[in-house]
Amino acid sequence: MNTDLYKYTLRLADTALILSHRLCEYTSKGPFLEEDLASMNTGLDYIGQAEALLKYAAKQNGTVDADQLAFAREEDEYANFHLVEFPNQDFGYLITRQFFMDVFSFYNFQLLKESKDETLAALAAKSLKEVTYHLKRSSEWMIRLGDGTAESHDRIQGCVNHLWMYVDEMFDEDEVNTNLLKENIATDLSEVKKKWMKKVSEVFEIATLTKPEQPKYSLVYGKDGGHTEYMGFLLTEMQFLKNRFPQDTW
């Protein structure tokens, strides 16, 4: 097994998995019914991505299936970004989190669809269509809220300021990435970062929002198995039946 490729696949898979989990928690809590349905659509796209990627990871691993990976790992074996663990504090946080992720996924998948790894390339090409739509929607919401009322502007700027601490993880180059980049499998994160910053600036300008400073906050990133305080609760809930009845199928 190529351990770098396995880790890389899990990072993509878990980020999609945990984000889809947050979105499913939001059901019946949207600001109006149409929006409730729209965010569930995004959630369904992400759980679909997660499933395809976890199947690929399981295939590489050879001893587990996608469900075991999704529901039966230790916390430090999950490799998702910190950003997607952040709870649905309100619609502003939900949209800001989504926007940051959508911009990342959009540019990352654009590069990943050229990957030498055919499975990842195919998954990226399929997901890119979904993400293109998500990005359009979340950008528009950033603009509506940023340029809406004084209250919405302050609230969404607050969300941006708070969630900005999770941004640098997405572009952190480590061995996994550099090794795979040499093999033309992984994407060039410095390239993704450039595009991410440009797109975010453009949307922020229309939305009358400002970019915060970007210091480095995290000691251990989610992609390396270190997690926020939110993650334990999330997993307790998500893994509940698997933990309680490890032998049973449903």
């Binding site: 109006f32 019914l33 149409e34 929006e35 349905l37 729209a38 739509y133």
Partner: peptide, 20 residues
Amino acid sequence: SLHAYDKTMAMESARDLYTR
């Protein structure tokens, strides 16, 4: 039918609601 605040939102909600 559906409810929306502007035409962009209306178009996207139509997509999310009626083409699932």
